[in-house]
Amino acid sequence: MSQENGDQMEKEAYQKVASRIEPKRPMLMNCVKAFFVGGFICVIGQCISTFYMHFFHFNEATVGAPTVATLIFISVLLTGFGVYDKFSQFSGAGTAVPVTGFANSMASTAIEYKTEGFVLGVGGNMFKLAGSVIVFGTVAAFIIGIIYTIATGQWGAM
């Protein structure tokens, strides 16, 4: 048996031992917590929407923007006071998936890289974590948009 094969067997034997002993992530409990916290954040969003529709003459179609902006403001504030990350260990995806998580990923990098200056630090790193969301969303939207244009034949002025 070659050295290579021996090493491979050793690695496989080790990985078996390691995966048997390491504690598993408490997936079920994490999902329950994510459900309740995530659901709760959406209810807050619904309350904010309802509030804006009642008091500020927004309608179903236009209320999205101010609602999202308000949630982002709250999330950035909580990030600044250093409490958002304390919730997250408990709630996992419950605080990461709502738009508040997107805002947290931007605010936390902005605050963290302040020591490297406002241009290269804050400006250059703000999208370090959030950037991939924007890139993949934009590329996906572009591809879907192209398919839609081809399908409907609306080429426009070309």
């Binding site: 990030t79 990350d85 974590l129």
Partner: peptide
Amino acid sequence: EKQFRYPIEYGSQRPPT
């Protein structure tokens, strides 16, 4: 943490390991 993982105010859930 900043060097190897995430900004410290970033809300990521750490596994039990």
